[in-house]
């Protein structure tokens, strides 16, 4: 018998499972869809409604607080550039999606990492799942997301959460495991409860690593949100996609440049919080 003739219908099975889920869990998907949708709308409005200059001023202030006046100035100028390229609305929409997706990815990923750090069996189980989530081509997530949630921003955010969550869980686990065992023991030896040791000793000491994980989550979320733009999530992804389909290099470039500006801003801000955390713990 030739191995090529054997056809294991994994694709069929996945189809069947997705069908079953859509039929039986429709109430759950609708609920998630409603909650996510209103979250996204609210944040989008908050970013798009004020005059661009006001939003830019706020972003520049954040930049100043996180780093220094140079970065603040860079932020003001580069976001100003986005406005002048006519990409402001799209950029703020993308930013809203990135923020919602990364906050939820962090809220899911960090606790998973905490459990994994404390439980060897859970860790062994979680690791291959995370590997799978991270190496599966990001496009593939869009298919079930669209099936469950239809076209639009919600499936984009769901796919983004799945795709960007792994480093949050992974680096949280790593950070917690790296905390000096003797220091944890010192917490224990004086009668602290496990919860107190976690919040007062382990998490503060793991914070630089956890922040590095959060930084990666945000960067992955940005890349995925752009891809999701292709399937109706809107924002800068849609702009880039329009540029591609019309062979309009200029439009594609403007969209792409705006993505880069967002990426630099998000990376530098979260990176700064990470190094602030580490300067405190390594003192």
């Amino acid at each position: 018998m030739n191995l090529q003739d054997v056809r294991i219908p994994i694709g069929d099975w996945v189809d069947a499972m997705v069908d079953w889920l859509t039929i039986n869990l429709v109430w759950m998907f609708d609920g998630i869809s409603d909650i996510l949708g209103s979250l996204i709308d609210a944040l989008e409005t908050a970013l798009q409604f004020p005059p661009a200059l006001v939003t830019i001023a706020v972003l520049a202030l954040i930049a100043l607080f996180a780093r220094n006046w140079k970065f603040s100035l860079f932020t003001a100028l580069s976001f100003g550039l986005i406005v002048t390229m006519g990409q402001w609305e799209a950029a703020m929409s993308t930013l809203a999606l990135v923020l919602v997706a990364s906050i939820l990815a962090v809220l899911l990923g960090v606790p998973l990492g905490i459990i994994a750090a404390r439980n060897q069996a859970f860790s062994a189980l979680l690791r291959p799942v995370l590997d799978f989530m991270q190496t599966m081509p990001s496009f593939v997530y869009l298919i079930p997301a669209i099936i469950f949630f239809g076209i639009g921003k919600v499936p984009g955010v769901v796919a983004t959460i799945v795709f960007s969550m792994p480093p949050g869980a992974r680096l949280t686990e790593l950070g917690l495991r790296q905390v000096d065992a003797e220091v944890v023991e010192a917490g224990e030896a004086f009668g602290a409860s496990p919860a107190k040791i976690l919040t007062r000793v382990q998490i503060p000491l793991a914070l630089p690593t956890i922040m590095a994980g959060i930084n990666q989550v945000i960067m992955l979320a940005l890349s995925m949100v752009v891809i999701a733009g292709i399937v109706g999530a809107g924002g800068l992804g849609a702009e880039v996609f329009r540029g591609v389909t019309r062979l309009n290099v200029g439009l594609g470039f403007e969209g792409g440049l705006s993505v880069v500006i967002l990426a630099v801003f998000l990376d530098r801000v979260t990176g700064a919080f990470g190094s602030k955390a580490s300067s405190r713990t390594s003192k």
Binding site: V183, E185, A186, E188, T281
Partner: peptide, 22 residues
């Protein structure tokens, strides 16, 4: 009760000090 014992009756000093750096 064990935690109470540790915080009231027995304390410990460690080889590499086990201090909280933060």
């Amino acid at each position: 009760e064990l935690r109470a014992l540790r915080s009231e009756k027995i304390s410990m000093v460690f080889q590499h000090f086990g201090l909280f750096p933060h």
